[in-house]
Amino acid sequence: MDVRTQFFTYGEDAESRLLLHDGSDFGPVTLAYETFGTLNPEKDNAVLVYHALSGSQHLAGTNPAVPGVGDRWDVSCRTGWWDDFVGPGKAVDTDKFYVICANYLGGCYGSTGPSSINPENGKPYGGDFPQIALADIVDSQLPLYDELGITTFHAAIGSSLGGMLALNFAARYPERVKRVIPVATGLASTTLTRVHNLEQILAIENDPNFCDGHYYDGPPPLRGLALARMISHKTFVSLHHMEARMTDRCEQEQDEFSWYKIRTPLESYILHQGRKFLRRFDANTYLQLLSAWTGFNLVRDMGCTDYREVFADCGHQEYLLFSIDSDCCFYPEEQELLRDELRGAGLKVDYVSVSSDKGHDSFLLEPELYTEPIKRMLEKENRRATPGSVLCAQAGLS
C-alpha cells in the first residue's frame, strides 16, 4: 500500500487563526496528514488515530518521502508505524473504515512546527514557536476534519501520548466521537513522568548548541537530544526485551566520553538508541511535545472539579482501554484509574489487560494481542464488559 502525505493549510487571515490555550492566536497552520480507505457517502465511517510522542502521520503502508522534510524522513520512517494494525482486514480495517492520522502542530514531519519558516521574517521559528498544550494539538486539527466533512468520528484511537489526545478530544468535543480506544495511556501526567520529562528537557537545553532553540543555521544540539532519548528509551521497552535486542558489540564515538570507556553491550545498545533518533527527529519538536505531555491534566484543563464533571457529556460514548502489564512508561495503575473514573461517570468501558514481555512498545510490536478487541469495538460486535470485569490478552490469545 503506497501512500502519500497530504497537506492542509488554514489561518492565513486573522479570522481563521488558531486560538491557543494561553489566549494568543497563531497562524498560518499547515497540517501534514494521511488517509487510508474510503469515506462513505454518509461520512460516518471515519476513524481518527493520534500518534505517539515521536510518531508521524504515516500510519500504514509505504511512503518514500515527505515534501519539505528532507533527510529526517529516513528509512525507519518509510513504513507506517502501525502498519501491522491498519489496512485491509487488519485491526482497523480500511475496507470498512476511512482512517486519518495527522502530524501534530509543533511537529517535524510536515506540520507547522519550530523548524518551519516563520512568514514574518523568513527564518525558522526555532525558540520563537509558541509553547503548546495537548489541547492546542487537538484544536489545531478541527479545521481539517471540517474540511473533510467529518462531523462525528466512528472512533478515536490513541496510544501513549496519543491516548491522552484521544481522551482530550473525546471529553472536550464529545459530540464528535462515538467510540474511544486509549492504549497504554493515562488521565494526567504522573510525578514520575514529570521527572523523566524534566531530565530530557534539561538534557537538550544544556547542550551548548541549543541556543535557545535557534540552532537551524548552525550545529544542532545532537548530544542533548541523544541523551534525552536515552533517558526515555528505558521506559519504552522492558528490561527483558532490551536484553534480547542487545548485540555483543561495544562501541562508542570519540566525542561521547573523555574518561569513561564503553565496555558492555547494554551501554552500547542504549547509546545506539540515542544516536539513531538524531537522524529522524528535531530537538525543538521533542521539547514541545514533552512540555505538553508534562502539563496534561484533564480536570484542570477543562476547569472542572473532578472526572465525573469532565466526562459528564460523554454518556453516548463507548470506551475500550488497553493496559500492558510490563509497561513502565504508563504503568497499569494509570489505566485502572482511567477505567474506574470512566465507569464512575457512568460510561460503558471494556478493559483489556495485555500480558507482554515487551513493555510499553507492545502496542507497536504485537498486533495479535490487540486486533480482536479493536475489531469487535469498531465493528460493533464486542460483548459489553460488566463493571469490574477484565479481558485478558496473552501471546496467541485474546
Results as ranks from 00 to 15, higher is better:
residue 222 L to F: 12
residue 148 L to T: 03
residue 168 N to S: 15
residue 165 L to I: 11
residue 197 N to M: 05
residue 198 L to E: 11
residue 188 A to C: 09
residue 201 I to R: 15
residue 241 H to E: 15
residue 243 E to W: 06
residue 198 L to Q: 13
residue 186 G to T: 11
residue 203 A to Q: 02
residue 216 Y to P: 04
residue 251 E to I: 02
residue 166 A to P: 02
residue 210 F to Y: 11
residue 187 L to R: 01
residue 219 P to N: 07
residue 147 E to N: 12
residue 160 S to M: 07
residue 232 S to L: 03
residue 175 E to G: 15
residue 156 A to C: 12
residue 227 L to C: 12
residue 152 T to W: 08
residue 175 E to N: 14
residue 178 K to W: 08
residue 181 I to G: 00
residue 177 V to W: 02
residue 156 A to E: 06
residue 157 I to L: 09
residue 240 H to M: 10
residue 165 L to D: 00
residue 224 G to C: 10
residue 229 R to V: 05
residue 185 T to A: 10
residue 189 S to F: 03
residue 202 L to C: 09
residue 232 S to P: 04
residue 192 L to M: 15
residue 167 L to T: 02
residue 231 I to T: 07
residue 188 A to E: 14
residue 219 P to M: 07
residue 222 L to M: 10
residue 154 H to S: 11
residue 213 G to W: 02
residue 218 G to D: 14
residue 168 N to V: 07
residue 226 A to S: 15
residue 217 D to P: 05
residue 166 A to L: 04
residue 168 N to R: 13
residue 235 T to S: 10
residue 180 V to N: 02
residue 221 P to Q: 09
residue 195 V to K: 05
residue 250 C to K: 04
residue 207 D to A: 09
residue 248 D to I: 08
residue 213 G to M: 04
residue 197 N to I: 13
residue 218 G to A: 14
residue 181 I to A: 03
residue 187 L to A: 13
residue 181 I to F: 04
residue 173 Y to R: 12
residue 247 T to D: 14
residue 232 S to V: 05
residue 200 Q to D: 06
residue 215 Y to T: 04
residue 169 F to R: 01
